[in-house]
Amino acid sequence: RVIAMPSVRKYAREKGVDIRLVQGTGKNGRVLKEDIDAWLA
């Protein structure tokens, strides 16, 4: 299970990103909004 705040999950869904593919850089591997942006870049 991916650790991410609900707002980040929603952001990823809106961008069409599968959050399971994104490498989290936050505490304990948490996926941050910046990680979604970096994955899209």
Results as ranks from 00 to 15, higher is better:
23 Q>M: 14
16 G>Q: 09
4 A>G: 05
32 L>H: 08
26 G>N: 02
5 M>P: 10
22 V>F: 03
29 G>A: 07
17 V>R: 01
10 K>L: 11
26 G>L: 03
35 D>R: 00
25 T>R: 07
29 G>W: 06
21 L>E: 09
27 K>G: 09
10 K>W: 12
20 R>Q: 13
41 A>R: 15
16 G>W: 06
38 A>L: 14
35 D>H: 02
16 G>I: 04
29 G>K: 08
9 R>Q: 08
16 G>T: 04
8 V>E: 06
26 G>W: 02
4 A>T: 07
25 T>H: 07
22 V>I: 11
36 I>M: 01
30 R>P: 02
34 E>A: 14
17 V>E: 00
9 R>G: 03
19 I>N: 00
24 G>F: 02
36 I>K: 00
36 I>N: 00
10 K>S: 07
27 K>V: 12
2 V>T: 09
3 I>L: 07
30 R>S: 10
9 R>V: 09
3 I>K: 11
37 D>R: 06
12 A>H: 00
31 V>K: 04
40 L>A: 08
5 M>F: 14
29 G>E: 05
32 L>R: 13
41 A>E: 13
25 T>D: 02
7 S>W: 15
27 K>L: 14
24 G>T: 03
1 R>G: 11
22 V>H: 01
11 Y>L: 04
30 R>Y: 12
15 K>H: 14
39 W>S: 05
5 M>Q: 11
31 V>I: 12
33 K>V: 10
21 L>N: 09
28 N>M: 12
41 A>I: 14
39 W>G: 02
41 A>M: 15
2 V>W: 03
16 G>E: 07
19 I>D: 01
34 E>I: 15
21 L>F: 14
41 A>G: 11
19 I>S: 02
28 N>K: 11
35 D>Y: 00
17 V>S: 01
15 K>E: 06
17 V>A: 04
39 W>I: 06
26 G>I: 02
33 K>P: 05
26 G>R: 03
8 V>A: 05
9 R>K: 13
20 R>G: 08
25 T>N: 07
18 D>W: 05
12 A>N: 00
38 A>K: 13
28 N>E: 10
24 G>Q: 03
7 S>E: 12
20 R>H: 13
5 M>L: 13
12 A>M: 01
13 R>I: 12
23 Q>Y: 15
20 R>V: 08
3 I>V: 11
33 K>L: 10
27 K>I: 10
33 K>D: 04
32 L>G: 06
36 I>L: 04
10 K>Q: 10
9 R>I: 10
8 V>S: 04
10 K>R: 15
41 A>P: 05
39 W>T: 05
25 T>F: 04
14 E>A: 15
3 I>Q: 07
40 L>Y: 07
33 K>S: 07
6 P>S: 14
21 L>D: 09
8 V>K: 01
13 R>W: 15
10 K>I: 08
11 Y>Q: 03
8 V>R: 01
14 E>F: 14
41 A>F: 15
2 V>F: 04
3 I>W: 03
17 V>Q: 01
3 I>A: 09
40 L>S: 06
24 G>L: 02
25 T>G: 05
13 R>E: 06
7 S>I: 08
14 E>V: 11
25 T>A: 04
14 E>Q: 12
29 G>H: 09
38 A>S: 14
36 I>E: 00
1 R>P: 14
2 V>Y: 03
35 D>S: 02
40 L>V: 12
24 G>E: 02
14 E>I: 12
37 D>V: 07
38 A>F: 13
17 V>Y: 01
35 D>F: 00
29 G>L: 06
4 A>E: 04
1 R>L: 10
8 V>Q: 02
30 R>L: 11
17 V>L: 06
23 Q>T: 13
21 L>I: 12
22 V>S: 01
2 V>D: 07
9 R>M: 13
19 I>G: 01
32 L>Q: 09
13 R>N: 09
37 D>H: 05
13 R>M: 15
32 L>N: 07
7 S>A: 10
23 Q>R: 13
12 A>W: 02
31 V>T: 05
7 S>Y: 14
7 S>F: 11
5 M>A: 14
14 E>S: 12
37 D>M: 06
32 L>M: 10
10 K>H: 08
17 V>I: 09
1 R>E: 14
2 V>I: 14
1 R>S: 11
41 A>S: 15
35 D>P: 00
41 A>Q: 14
29 G>S: 07
8 V>I: 09
14 E>W: 15
11 Y>K: 03
10 K>T: 06
7 S>T: 09
39 W>Q: 05
10 K>N: 08
7 S>P: 06
32 L>F: 09
27 K>D: 09
6 P>E: 09
34 E>V: 12
24 G>A: 08
18 D>G: 03
11 Y>M: 04
11 Y>V: 03
34 E>M: 14
23 Q>K: 15
16 G>L: 07
6 P>L: 13
17 V>N: 00
8 V>M: 04
24 G>S: 06
26 G>F: 02
19 I>R: 01
14 E>D: 13
15 K>V: 10
16 G>S: 07
7 S>V: 08
26 G>V: 03
16 G>K: 09
6 P>K: 15
18 D>L: 07
41 A>V: 15
38 A>N: 14
30 R>G: 08
19 I>Y: 05
19 I>F: 05
36 I>F: 00
29 G>I: 02
32 L>V: 09
30 R>N: 08
1 R>A: 11
1 R>D: 12
14 E>H: 12
20 R>E: 10
29 G>M: 09
34 E>W: 15
18 D>S: 06
27 K>F: 14
24 G>R: 04
30 R>W: 14
11 Y>F: 04
37 D>W: 05
5 M>I: 09
26 G>E: 02
4 A>P: 04
14 E>R: 13
33 K>A: 08
32 L>S: 09
12 A>K: 00
40 L>R: 07
14 E>K: 14
28 N>G: 11
4 A>D: 04
37 D>T: 06
2 V>M: 05
28 N>Y: 14
28 N>Q: 14
11 Y>W: 04
11 Y>T: 03
24 G>W: 02
2 V>P: 10
35 D>E: 01
19 I>T: 03
10 K>Y: 12
6 P>N: 13
1 R>F: 04
34 E>T: 15
35 D>I: 00
22 V>W: 02
30 R>K: 10
22 V>N: 01
19 I>M: 06
3 I>N: 10
7 S>R: 12
26 G>M: 03
32 L>W: 05
32 L>K: 10
8 V>Y: 02
25 T>I: 03
8 V>L: 04
20 R>Y: 10
12 A>L: 02
31 V>W: 01
4 A>Q: 05
41 A>K: 11
13 R>A: 11
38 A>H: 15
22 V>A: 03
7 S>D: 12
20 R>S: 13
13 R>D: 07
8 V>T: 07
38 A>M: 13
5 M>K: 13
15 K>M: 13
21 L>M: 12
30 R>M: 13
15 K>N: 12
6 P>Y: 07
4 A>V: 07
19 I>L: 10
27 K>Y: 15
30 R>H: 11
18 D>Y: 06
12 A>V: 01
15 K>S: 09
24 G>I: 02
23 Q>N: 13
29 G>R: 08
8 V>F: 02
30 R>T: 10
37 D>I: 07
20 R>W: 11
6 P>W: 08
36 I>S: 00
25 T>K: 06
35 D>Q: 01
35 D>K: 00
27 K>R: 14
18 D>A: 06
5 M>R: 13
1 R>T: 15
16 G>N: 10
21 L>H: 10
34 E>S: 14
9 R>S: 05
18 D>T: 05
11 Y>E: 03
18 D>R: 05
34 E>D: 15
21 L>A: 11
41 A>H: 12
15 K>G: 03
8 V>D: 04
10 K>F: 09
17 V>D: 00
21 L>K: 13
28 N>P: 02
22 V>R: 01
36 I>A: 00
30 R>D: 06
31 V>P: 03
40 L>D: 04
25 T>W: 03
